[in-house]
Design a protein around this nucleic acid. Structure first.
Lengths: 225, 225
DNA sequence: GCATTCATTAATGCATACGCAAATAAATGC
DNA sequence: GCATTTATTTGCGTATGCATTAATGAATGC
């Protein structure tokens, strides 16, 4: 049997996961404050694991512990988006370069190819949510292929921070046709071992995404999300 | 009066600071395990603030909480150094670019200039520790000037992780004459607003530093520090 | 009416307690 | 002796209680 008997997740871990879900779903809205005891009641546990979870999530930039005010869910401003996209742009384009340099065989590249296919299928059927998920996967696979665990965790943290903003703007965007074209080009560059090209194209791709999303936020006066 | 009546730092904060010091000083050596209760006794407080501090430091990649084994001080391998220097290289050279693009006046550039002077003075008098401190300051000032708070905190985290390795290899290195030349060139490029040049030179600078330090670690078989 | 001080409330920071599970030691069977 | 089971120890996860201190509102003086 490969399947472990499902070791029963600690309360702290549960709190981390459930709080993340509540934040991403907007159930705990950006900018809102919540007492530790309130969250404890809500998740049906004592304050201790809540505090521990909050400490962890604070380190991940999702919330802030303000003594006597409670836990504040951090809003993301346009300036934050600019900061985050700058970081993502650099680290992901380096990842593209490194991935290309590793001369990976097509088996290793399968997940990346799959994510591109998924995006294209989603586009055809107009399933934007699906497209966004596949897009996430593409970026995640890209940094996986580069094999730098720090980059992986930084990129995943930054993605978490912009998740709400991304899902809000998702339906305000034009169909991401160009985006898919970019992905395919990055993929080809990696496959052919051209690190410089993979890096350049991906960088341009991310810079465009930044412009697009920042533009949308400003246009719609969405300063704090 | 500008001076507050020195609000008495919480135990958790104290634990964070003191544990950091103990780690950097080698008092808690890389790879060593320590029970929460042991650390609590050592810092003269209960387990609660120790656990909270450990959670925070775990998020910063300095240690790991392993149930029943205690808190493990994370060693840094050569592979880790490569990962970290790759991240530092990218984010700092972007910072150099952004700093240059901001057309900062000489007042804003004073701290950076000062750090370069300090390094040169330290070199003349052969005070390697002082040189290292000034070097740290240069890199820190550089990211400050770029004005991206995420980059600032990532870079500072990564620097914390390599601090031990850096101080161990400090005395094995040749005099960092070339390094100082690089710093000055980066400074000039920033001052003249040439972002592309600032970025390129700094990137080269960091890549050299990476090669140097990785080479030293491998030569001296220092695999886990 | 406004500012200042005082009293009250309440949330946190931390110490402490305890059950459970993992690790270790002891004991048993072969 | 060695393997396997059972007993014991021990560290952690979590709940709980309390002192501290910030925030809020009431009361006082001007």
């Amino acid at each position: 049997m490969k399947h472990q008997t499902a070791k029963p997740l600690s309360n702290t871990q549960r709190a981390i996961h459930e709080l993340r879900e509540l934040i991403f779903s907007g159930d705990l809205p950006a900018g809102s404050d919540h007492l530790e005891s309130e969250l404890a009641t809500r998740l049906n546990m004592s304050r201790t694991p809540i505090r521990e979870a909050a400490l962890t999530l604070e380190g991940q930039g999702l919330l802030e512990l303000r003594p006597r005010k409670g836990v504040r869910i951090l809003p993301v401003s346009v300036e934050d988006m600019v900061e985050i996209y700058d970081v993502l742009t650099e680290l992901e384009s380096l990842s593209a370069r490194r991935a290309a340099e590793r001369n990976l065989n097509s088996i290793a590249l399968t997940p990346l190819a799959k994510s591109i296919e998924d995006m294209e299928n989603a586009l055809v059927s107009g399933a934007l949510e699906d497209w966004a998920n596949a897009d996430d996967l593409f970026h995640q696979e890209l940094v996986n292929l580069a094999g730098n665990s720090r980059i992986k965790s930084i990129v995943s943290m930054m993605n978490d921070q912009v998740r709400r903003a991304r899902s809000i703007t998702l339906f305000m965007r034009p169909l991401p046709l160009k985006s898919n074209e970019d992905h395919r080009q990055v993929f080809e560059a990696i496959k052919s071992g051209d690190g410089e090209r993979a890096s350049l194209i991906h960088k341009r791709h991310r810079q465009n995404a930044k412009k697009l999303i920042v533009g949308l936020l400003e246009k719609h006066r969405l300063n704090k999300i």
